[in-house]
Write a protein that binds this DNA or RNA. Structure first.
Lengths: 220, 220
DNA sequence: TAGATTGTTAATCGATTAACAATC
DNA sequence: TAGATTGTTAATCGATTAACAATC
């Protein structure tokens, strides 16, 4: 049996499992929106696009939230997955780089729905600073440290061109954010205590191209 | 020794390796831009943010493109990785859903630099159809099949809200694309012969939140 | 030759899958 | 009780790491 510390958290959830939890949460919320009260690992797995065995294994790292022979209570499981993901507390986010992508991110309504508040927009260009985007006034880059501290920002999003990304990253780390999500097409360096995730759209397309090349090469 | 089929391709490159190849290509291109002619697995690994052992192991799946005691020729290795990724042929891309994100993607210059041509923009809304974005006139959703066939589109990008995503996905599959990149926050279902990659920005933030929660819970 | 660095092997590690006992 | 479904165990599979022989 797994030992649960008194705060209800469970130790050592594998990274691969953590990466799938948001998908489970989405599927659970979709079920709740359809007024489904109880679900099974089979149903939920189909919705989330994984195997039932993997779903049960993943959930077992969080605790025992199902009932054998019955299934899972949608509302309860959703809450527990949310707790595991640390969504009980709303995280405050700063977006750095208000170009096309930064604009799109600032206007994305999906953040608020899923536990995040964009509390500041920052850009290096004087032409952009002072403009209003998604109800927020864009602030200059040299205010970044102040913003992070005074508004208790824990996550920074980098939507700058590749050239400035590492500097912005360093500034965010210096300012004390816990995690960084970057869209800049460049490998970034962070100290071990800061969590970094990188999304590179062109890289995603290149991975698709690899499989396309396989297909055409083999005549499939 | 690995057997190389006559077309120069190598069989069975592991998925985890494929996913890292674009990063290697980026790092190589950055070196080339700095007029570096020869590199080592140590240098390249640092640039790409992986270990030298992993880099060499990954490259070994593609073939033997280095020289022992010397290192790798930057231009040659870059070319070979590009070939492995199928970038010799330019892929044509259609973007479906021209909201904030679709707009940003349409205007992203990084695609052309990295082997992709956005040849069509499609949207379901009559208010958007007919407008010009990034030099392309937005076309109606019911033209999708025609567009894919007549313009030889092999990759579809879904930037619609979650609600319409599966229908768009089905239409893309029906039209015959080889790969799909989706930004919609919903699990999509594709047949086995179609390659699907999903980017969900809010999920990325939730994964960061998980680690942040660990940190604060343990008082780190 | 001596030094450097690759490509590959073997060992370790982590993730997935399948099967089933526990239990509702 | 009989049927259903979880939570867990054990087996399989794949990915990473470390070490080093090959070789430039």
């Amino acid at each position: 049996m797994v030992i649960h510390p008194t705060n209800g958290a469970v130790r050592a959830v594998p990274p691969a499992t953590v990466a799938r939890l948001p998908g489970y949460l989405r599927a659970l919320d979709a079920l709740a929106a359809e007024d489904v009260v109880t679900t099974s690992s089979d149903e939920l797995a189909v919705r989330a696009g994984v195997s039932p065995a993997q779903l049960r294994k993943d959930l077992s790292f969080l605790g025992s939230y199902g009932r054998r022979g019955v299934g899972y209570d949608v509302a309860h499981l959703s809450e527990q997955v949310g707790v595991a993901l640390g969504l009980a507390t709303q995280r405050r986010v700063v977006i750095v780089g208000i170009g096309n992508l930064g604009h799109a991110l600032a206007n994305y309504s999906g953040f608020a729905d899923r536990g995040f508040a964009v509390v500041a927009l920052v850009d290096a260009s004087p032409a952009v600073v002072g403009t209003t985007v998604a109800g927020l006034v864009v602030e200059p880059l040299d205010q970044l440290a102040d913003i992070v501290t005074s508004r208790d920002v824990s996550i920074g999003v980098i939507a700058t061109p590749a050239a400035g990304a590492q500097d912005v990253c360093d500034a965010l780390v210096q300012a004390g954010v816990a995690g960084i999500l970057t869209f800049a097409p460049r490998a970034l360096r962070v100290p071990e205590h800061v969590d970094l995730r990188a999304v590179d759209v062109a890289s995603e397309l290149q991975i698709l191209a690899f499989h396309d090349a396989r297909r055409t090469a083999t005549g499939a």
